[in-house]
């Protein structure tokens, strides 16, 4: 087998307006596809619902990060001020959650943000340096003025004919087989 040989990995459909894309997403969702995505130069209100997406799980990562930050802040201040090197400052107790709170609060936010960022990257399987969509010339205009739906061949409902006819029915202006 030659290294340049390609195989089809999905179908890419192009749309001209956000409204067309939203409508197409509704159709694809109702047809029961799971392995698919939409691409647009900007966020489109209502797209989550149109795609049937549930609330993102990234909040759990944020929460875990925040909790870790809060308690590590408390622990750090307790360790440094009361345990490792006890020193009286301004007549205050060696440890109280009061003065440990600002630091814990900052660490809650910092690790919460880290949880969000890395949780998002993990859930989206980023970084991803290659995507077969890069092979499609027309896909470059997704950063400018075109809108796309991409259905992957690994979807159980995928078939070259019926998926193509579904996309044609949604008013796609171009449909292309993506190869890898």
């Amino acid at each position: 087998m030659s290294a340049t040989q390609t195989r089809p990995v999905g179908l890419l459909a192009q749309y001209e307006t956000p409204a067309d894309l939203l409508h197409a997403a509704l159709e694809v969702r109702d047809a029961g596809y799971r392995q698919w995505d939409v691409y647009s130069p900007f966020p489109i209100h209502g797209m989550d619902a149109a795609m049937g997406l549930k609330n993102s799980k990234v909040g759990y990562f944020t929460f875990a990060g925040g909790i870790t930050g809060f308690f590590s802040g408390m622990l750090m201040i307790w360790f440094m001020n009361k345990f490792d090197y006890p020193i009286v400052v301004g007549g205050k107790p060696l440890f109280t959650p009061l003065f440990a709170f600002p630091v814990s609060y900052e660490l809650t936010i910092l690790l919460g943000a880290f949880g969000t960022l890395f949780g998002m990257a993990f859930l989206n399987r980023l970084p991803k340096l290659y995507n077969p969509l890069f092979n499609v010339e027309r896909f470059r205009r997704v950063t400018d003025d075109k809108f796309f739906v991409y259905i992957e061949a690994i979807d159980p409902k995928y078939s070259a004919e019926s998926t193509r006819s579904l996309l044609e029915k949604t008013g796609a202006t171009a449909i292309e087989v993506v190869e890898d």
Binding site: D20, H23, H45, G171, T173
Partner: peptide
């Protein structure tokens, strides 16, 4: 209408 999905798509304009 802000967050509601339009009932019918507007024609390509």
């Amino acid at each position: 209408t802000h967050h509601e999905i339009p009932a019918t798509p507007t024609a390509a304009d």
